[in-house]
Design a protein around this nucleic acid. Structure first.
Lengths: 256, 256
DNA sequence: TCGAAAGTGTGACGAAAATCATACACCTGA
DNA sequence: TCAGGTGTATGATTTTCGTCACACTTTCGA
């Protein structure tokens, strides 16, 4: 169950593209890789579309010829196994750009994107973008950094999921959620997003039951607690030790 | 134990940069993302260096300000866990470009590169490359595709390692090895590279023993065999079914 | 060419994690 | 207000996989 109400606290409204971009640039969670100027260029190419909660933005196997800029809402991007199991790679939020990077090479999508909440998305088509990239060198340079950052994100996530077992994978996910989806209070760090055990399981390639047992055990150790059904971090150090986190990842990597 | 002799069959000699590039471009295993012209530009920036077998080309944590073009030899790139376990991400061969993509953002390396055989490497320094990328738009466009391809490689590998257990991970690795390191004979597909059980284990984030047991069991089923200590694929379909391979990955993704 | 080093093959064991099963607490909408 | 859907909690069982131990084989360099 995703908590609609909390998600919407951050909603900037439908025509707030500029505001979103600026907030992201100046704010604490600066995950935006683009300069104001480049964003302006991108904005001029966007076609605004809304997606209903639960609808698919693109499918694995689609021919990809677009990029997507999240104006409002949340999007998850995942790969599916033949038996229906999913591995969630990303949760995107307002201000994020996503899409099949290889759209530039006209390949098919390697994953699926679904609107987790109602979303407003700015579509950027390859045929509009490509000429810009070939002429506007500062834009193309920023694009290169962006693509590189996305690749690094995947690599670091891979390490997190493979090195320290399922416990490590879950711990690193909780830490990633801190950036963009948390608020510090007196009694601990509260999450402003509410993911179910199943959602967490998909993020680490595991099962609902395993996630539940791990969380339960951490709760018994006093490292986490629940408040209105959502997780509160009581002992950050405890969680960090599980996945050997050394606080070395930049914020645009250490995120969902 | 890497089989030096077999590896050297493909050796193009020290000053064969051009030849390497062309062969890669025109050959079956076209993994090179760059046009002849861009390669020429890159070549003009390269400083040729040799690395002894077993020496490190760069370390995790190094400040990265270079890219590397393999002129001859083989290079492996891996991440280390705190306890010394390694996860090998890539094996590169002649004609491949590699390096910390985020060198463009001046970050530290996220992994280590080691020369598996004696290597001749062309070094490209960031300060030479960056001005070219900012002015030469076709080069920067090709770079963008290259970086995107590297990211997709990581994503697909992540899926392979997480979805179908260690059996699936090993099977997909054997399939990847087919591209670039195999030769079809009457009695099956022979590998021209000889990786030890430990090497395979590092490629899938597992242990020597587990790899050995899996190979042994596949051998008992008649799916693989050994010839002069190196694996021969007898039943390709059997292997493909283990990791649900549907032959949909492009060749520059489905490789080591 | 001989011995050390590196690699292979296997059994025994246990920990980690998936799977199967069941109970129960909730919303929420008819 | 009650039924059905969704999510949580937990036990029992099985499978997968890593660890340890040891014998055997191959390779390679002094």
């Amino acid at each position: 169950m995703y908590n609609e109400r909390k998600g919407l606290l951050n909603d900037k409204g439908v025509n707030a593209m500029e505001e979103v971009a600026c907030l992201k640039q100046d704010g604490l969670n600066n995950t935006c890789m683009f300069s104001r100027q480049s964003l302006q260029t991108l904005k001029s190419m966007m076609t605004e579309t809304t997606f209903k909660k639960g609808s698919n933005i693109f499918w694995e196997g689609d021919h990809s010829d677009k990029l997507f800029f999240v104006i409002s809402g949340r999007v998850k991007v995942f790969k599916s196994a033949y038996d229906g199991r999913d591995l969630v790679l990303h949760y995107f939020m307002d201000g994020d750009l996503f899409g099949e990077i290889s759209c530039l090479g006209s390949m098919e999508c390697a994953y699926t994107a679904t609107a987790v909440t109602e979303c407003t998305i700015g579509l950027i088509s390859e045929k509009d973008l490509e000429p810009q990239l070939l002429t506007n060198s500062s834009l193309s340079f920023e694009f290169m950094k962006w693509i590189g950052m996305m690749g690094q994100f995947t690599q670091v996530k891979m390490r997190d999921l493979l090195f320290y077992g399922k416990n490590g994978a879950l711990a690193s996910t909780l830490l990633r959620m801190l950036h963009g989806y948390s608020k510090t209070e007196e009694d601990g760090i509260h999450y402003t997003i509410s993911l179910t055990n199943s959602d967490l399981a998909q993020l680490i390639g595991s099962t609902r039951e395993t996630v539940n047992r791990m969380l339960q055990s951490w709760k018994n150790d006093g490292a986490i607690d629940y408040y209105h059904g959502s997780i509160v971090i009581k002992d950050l150090k405890y969680i960090k030790e599980i996945c050997h986190c050394e606080d070395r990842c930049p914020l645009n990597i250490c995120r969902l």
